[in-house]
Design a protein around this nucleic acid. Sequence first.
DNA 1: TTTTTTAATGCAAATGTTTGCATGATTTTT
DNA 2: AAAAATCATGCAAACATTTGCATTAAAAAA
Lengths: 346, 346
Amino acid sequence: MKKKEARITIKDIAKALNLSAATISRVLSNHPAISESTKKIVNDKVKEMGFSLDPIASSFRSKKTKSIGVICPRIDIDFHSKVISGIEEYAYKQGYQITIFQSHDSYIKETEIVQMLENSLAAGVIICPGLETKRYEHLKKLGKSNIPLVLYDRTSEQLKASKVIINDFEASYNATVHLIQQGCKNLAHIAGNQNVDIFKSRLTGFKKALEQYKLPFQEQFVKETKNLTYEEGKEAAEALLLNTSIPDGIVCANDYTAAATLKVFRNNGIAIPEKAAIIGFSNYPISSILEPQISTIDDSAYEMGLVAAKILIQQIEDKEMQVLDYQEVIIKTKLIVRGSSDRKQN
Amino acid sequence: MKKKEARITIKDIAKALNLSAATISRVLSNHPAISESTKKIVNDKVKEMGFSLDPIASSFRSKKTKSIGVICPRIDIDFHSKVISGIEEYAYKQGYQITIFQSHDSYIKETEIVQMLENSLAAGVIICPGLETKRYEHLKKLGKSNIPLVLYDRTSEQLKASKVIINDFEASYNATVHLIQQGCKNLAHIAGNQNVDIFKSRLTGFKKALEQYKLPFQEQFVKETKNLTYEEGKEAAEALLLNTSIPDGIVCANDYTAAATLKVFRNNGIAIPEKAAIIGFSNYPISSILEPQISTIDDSAYEMGLVAAKILIQQIEDKEMQVLDYQEVIIKTKLIVRGSSDRKQN
DNA sequence: TTTTTTAATGCAAATGTTTGCATGATTTTT
DNA sequence: AAAAATCATGCAAACATTTGCATTAAAAAA
């Protein structure tokens, strides 16, 4: 009968060194009141015995965890998986773990998850709210429970919280200006769901550029899609071709719809970029593989995650010193000019 | 001075109902020795007061958590993000949370993560081992700590543990046979890193098909790449074209290299699929967007995650009844025939 | 009715760590 | 040299829950 291998505890270290458990605990949290000499002795013993704190007991007592909840609509979307990659990377380095949830854009599930994170004392939460989310009470409650919060990508004016976004307006404006500079005069836009702020901004940026350059804005040259899928892109592009005049520049709200437009236009004998220039959004892998490669906006998803984690952890750790305040970071996007819009090189 | 909003505990419920904390606890875990009548009374009160158990205190006392550690090389790879999506979906439904880590294929980081999961009493672990991982002591240790383990995608004979894989050998064999049936005689293979079992199997499946159909295997028709990137694919395809005879069928170990091959061959005036048929692997989004669409093998990543979670949770919950045994599940792949290899429709 | 069995609940300990307060030792100030 | 200040450490309580064992009440058996 071997007795069950019991976990080494702080008390074992204490006993071995004739010190109190309190002292060991203080050494481990680098408490200033402990002398350097005992710190060394304890740390050596800790290493020797291969001890490490029981994080659960620790959380239980201190009412703090090292776990960050991340909620996104779905993680098998290139953009989100990149953001999460950035979050994980930074969080891990700072000693935090990330726990991931998919809301599938369901408001009910989102509230459920938030509730559970609150209940399990998450150190902080990073969220990209779902499409259905119009009310933010669940997130406000987090604030009341003193759990820091960072929103990314989709945000809301309604909520006083830290945010990491790209400037969709500006990015879309820049994309449009780029096409104008390539000589396009009849510009079209394949838009995302207009209930979503970021897609609304992309449309606004598009309009703004037209206005600025005194080009006409034509309602029938804007095609809204629901989910910006490749299939919807095809339909939108085909719809554009039904107009009496055909656009010579198409600003697409993502790369799938841009890829679809490329295909449809080509199939209809419209040379890209000579007769029509196309630019997408997000810099998906496909955009650099298609022929011609598709110009796009790089949305710096990985960096967005990195920054979100950074802001969040800062807030978590500043919380004790009561310097809680919100930041809004706008990640720089980059215009990537490729074959689908670059007329000079042709 | 309002007093700090304290958490509602099991004791508050007990007091309110003139019962003991023990009883409340038992109701909450549906203990058989509690009468139905008190169960109802307690449950009602719990709802009324909006109480829920403190998961940390609960874990602390019971030495069990509801958290599953997931380790993958990186999550911003389409395949892994799909697997994780499947894991999350199933785990969430069963009341488990998933905590995600990226090993970046580093053995050291991998052991570090496993160690930490062990230390934090993970309920179970799902892992796709990194490329550097040749020894499995860290994972064996998990078993000794009684933490169930499921490997996915990359596995090893060395380790006695549950596994979820696709039959790469068979999938690659089927892909090759498909090309042969399209009339290809000179088959080439663009291979993945041959230190990785799954890529080795894809090569073996390729060879097996040639043998079976009595076609010659030519060493110079196999090009190994390190990471199966689009760029490497281009180099490999160009290298293939340097041979005196040019292959008329190319089995690629993933869709990026297939896409690259498609481009290189076309640029060299080789009609696809007429002069050369191409098939990829994994069914990445690009494969259905390129023109022609690329035939491929769907690796059912989402399902793989689902199954991995299912097996793991089963093990976690059976652990108490000591029925611990290992399962190996082979997920069915699906041959997807598209324009890059379908000669009949042309 | 008395005894035995069964059912339902309570008692109290135990989990590993943190932390306010107390204490003792040492150093500095007067 | 005494008093005051500083430094390093220990004591013990507290955290919310679970669970083995004990207890009481009710039901069944004798």
